[in-house]
Design a protein around this nucleic acid. Structure first.
Length: 504
DNA sequence: CGGTATGCTAATAGTAGCATACCGGTGCTCTATT
């Protein structure tokens, strides 16, 4: 089969981007496939084209409702009507109806949570599934152990569906993350296509400052001089809002905050405004990013350090998708690492909380098999968050051990183990920021991802020596000199602006 | 851990000085209540 002809037939492209053809060929030959492609290189084509060439339905597991909606829209724009996002946007009636009609669709988008529903599995079992896709597959190890445990159960669901041909897609995975992915999907043999996580056009800078105050001032300086648009990342929702107000006070009007605590409607609006160039700057938590397809982001600043190098790489990777020079600046002040440690500990249930749950179940002679029915009581006495409660519940439900006491001993071990993993990741991130060993930052990141640095990068990082002025806003002398007179130039400027907004 | 907010005291005017408490990210789904 000539894939180029098929590509043109279905998508009107004349050639593949690097990696796409190999991945698609691997799938068409019937191999489970793991694909690690850099962001913005057309991952969705890797399942869309095979979807057309293979008989049956494509199931796509997607982490975010907004991502599903985007993909559905994108397919519809391409003329495909047989596409559905099967999620909580549908009413109960709509869901029931859709379950009976699934065979009429070509592409079916689902969350991992939805896949745990028996009626959904039963509906999917009746199909001929040509391809089972896990989009943003790093979520399995990033979220599966605690925040979204259904991610770890994907393999179980996949087994129930008869182990269909599988494609896992991600941009960032260490060897360890890849192995966790293979294990949790229950893959026994597979092809892998791994491309470098390096983004040579992004310069890496760490700056050390004394205090939060100094950080804020430095951010104002940077934002004023750097060519935008840009993103500033925080680990606190409050600070995103505080900083966007602070920047507005300092004359930057096109700034907004973005975090998970905001109304969905506002989040969509702000994201759209940023994508369409009506905002220059977003002050965001890690909620902002997945599915942001903006080519021309010139800088990413970190006010706080992320909880792991994988997250850091994903966040800075939102810059420079157009391949042009961009910069990632992380501001560090001594003691910053305490916040991630604190966040990690708060996510898992504490020993006191685990004990409270144990006491409750022991005193009431409750079995852990019908744990869910005591949720309200248990959470009230122990003060567990939704995430913490689910970690305990899911662990106990899967337990084969009969003695409650032993179950809880194992649970405590499990929680400690998870905490150690999280702490290790934070310390690796911390070490990258302020290791005493003077070494190229890019080289160190690549080493973390088991890669060697093979190319020489200009303006690589602060360790190699960097000239930040390269990233400064360029006001052409020509424009300044003629600003009041040259109507031709004025007109050209206006046309250029409208041309830019037309592109979007 | 570290910053911010709140509260207490001492002393009687508005506030200084200190102690203490609190907070800190990511999202799906279903159900009950407005």
């Amino acid at each position: 089969m000539n894939l180029e002809i098929q590509l043109e037939k279905y998508f009107a492209y004349t050639s593949f981007r690097p990696g796409q053809k190999e991945i698609i060929t691997s799938l068409l030959e019937g191999n489970h496939t793991i694909a690690m492609l850099p962001t913005g290189t057309g991952k969705s084509l890797c399942y869309q084209l095979p979807g057309y060439l293979l008989e049956g339905q494509v199931i796509i597991i997607s982490p975010l409702l907004s991502l599903m909606q985007d993909q559905v829209e994108q397919l519809m724009m391409n003329g495909e009507k047989r596409v559905i996002a099967f999620n909580s946007f549908l009413t109960a009636d709509e869901k029931n109806h859709a379950l009976l009609q699934l065979h009429h669709y070509k592409f079916i988008f689902l969350s991992p949570e939805m896949l745990r529903s028996k009626s959904v599995i039963d509906g999917l079992k009746k199909l001929h599934i040509s391809l089972f896709v896990i989009d943003e597959a790093h979520c399995i190890s990033q979220w599966g152990y605690d925040f979204r445990p259904e991610y770890l159960k994907l393999g179980e669901s996949r087994d129930k569906l008869g182990k269909p041909l599988t494609l896992a897609l991600t941009a960032t995975a260490t060897k360890e993350v890849k192995n966790e992915l293979i294990a949790s999907l229950h893959l026994d043999h597979w092809n892998e296509f791994i491309y470098s996580v390096d983004r040579p056009n992004i310069s890496l800078v760490v700056e050390t400052v004394e205090s939060y105050q100094e950080k804020s001032e430095r951010i104002v300086e940077l934002v004023k001089r750097l060519e935008g648009p840009g993103i500033i990342y925080f680990s606190s929702k409050k600070l995103t809002e505080w900083m966007s107000a602070y920047l507005r006070e300092h004359g930057m009007t096109r700034v907004m905050a973005y975090h998970g605590g905001m109304e969905q409607e506002n989040r969509v609006l702000i994201q759209q405004q940023f994508l369409h160039g009506q905002l220059d700057l977003i002050c965001a938590t890690s909620a902002f990013g997945m599915g942001i397809n903006k080519e021309d982001i010139r800088f990413v600043i970190h006010f706080h350090m992320p909880l792991q190098l994988e997250s850091y790489l994903q966040e800075i990777g939102r810059a420079g998708r157009d391949g042009k020079k961009s910069v990632a600046i992380l501001l560090y002040s001594p003691g910053d690492e305490q916040l991630p440690y604190q966040i990690a500990e708060a996510e898992l249930p504490s020993e006191v909380q685990v004990n409270a749950v144990y006491q409750y179940l022991e005193m009431n002679h409750h079995m852990t098999t019908n744990l869910a029915s005591f949720e309200i009581d248990i959470r009230r006495i122990s003060g567990l968050t939704e995430t913490q409660w689910r970690i305990i519940r899911d662990y106990l439900v899967d337990q084969k051990e009969l003695l409650l006491k032993v179950q809880f001993q194992k649970l405590t071990l499990f929680i400690n183990e998870r905490l150690q993993v999280k702490k290790r990741k934070i310390s690796e991130m911390h070490l990258w920021i302020c290791s005493q060993i003077q070494q190229c930052r890019r080289k160190k990141i690549l080493k973390y991802f088991d890669e060697d640095m093979t190319i020489e990068v200009e303006n690589c990082c602060d360790q190699c020596g960097i000239d930040l002025t390269v990233f400064d806003l360029k006001i052409s002398k020509h424009q300044v000199a003629n600003s009041s007179y040259n109507w031709k130039q004025q007109l050209a400027n206006i046309l250029l602006v409208s041309e830019r907004s037309d592109e979007k």
